[in-house]
């Protein structure tokens, strides 16, 4: 249990640093915001309890807010929302007996299609909350919509790449 928390903390720290040092410096323009750190919530085990998931989302959101010079609370609100609906999406994407497993949701377990539906829907929820709160108006809605879709796509690609890098553990 203790090593588990330490491992998660290390993962969180690495993701935040990679986001701040590498990804935020890449030339993506105003349309795509690849948020690699969402992988932290997306890669939590199937049976990870909902309450600690929300706590982790809150902690990580605050760290990102402080690091990224945005309004404090912005990424927190979006990440919390994603953490809240993650089990609901996962339940529909995974087989019933997989939901009790302590493995990380991976392509091997979910299948390619369901894996993309899982991360795609979760990230769509995340980016929708994030950009609607950031813009806080319906004035240039078409631009906000493009931003949401492109960011979801960019983040999905990064998260999938990371998924291959962290080597899902065997069940």
């Amino acid at each position: 249990m203790n090593t588990n928390i330490l491992r998660l903390l290390l993962f969180l720290l690495i993701l935040i640093l990679v986001q701040d040092i590498v990804i935020d410096k890449l030339p993506f323009g105003t349309y795509a915001y690849p948020a690699l750190y969402t992988a932290f919530i997306l890669f939590l085990p199937f049976n990870y309890a909902a309450a600690p998931t929300l706590m982790w989302a809150f902690a990580m959101g605050l760290c990102i807010d402080i690091f990224s010079m945005d309004v404090i609370g912005l990424h927190t609100a979006a990440l919390l929302f994603m953490a809240y609906i993650r089990p609901k999406i996962l339940k529909r994407c995974a087989a019933k007996d997989d939901m009790g497993s302590s493995a990380m949701p991976s392509i091997r377990i979910l299948g390619l299609g369901m894996f993309f539906i899982y991360i795609g829907l979760s990230l769509l929820a995340y980016n929708t909350v994030l950009f609607m709160l950031d813009t806080f108006s319906v004035h240039h809605f078409q631009h906000t919509a493009i931003r949401i879709l492109l960011s979801t796509l960019a983040t999905s690609i990064l998260v999938t790449l990371l998924h291959f890098a962290v080597k899902p553990q065997r069940k």
């Binding site: 309450a51 929300l54 959101g61 404090i72 609370g73 919390l80 929302f81």
Partner: peptide
């Protein structure tokens, strides 16, 4: 869980 979510979300909005 919903209540915890709403509580934390409320804190986030308060911060914003």
């Amino acid at each position: 869980i919903l209540m915890l979510f709403m509580l934390l979300e409320a804190v986030a909005f308060l911060l914003i």
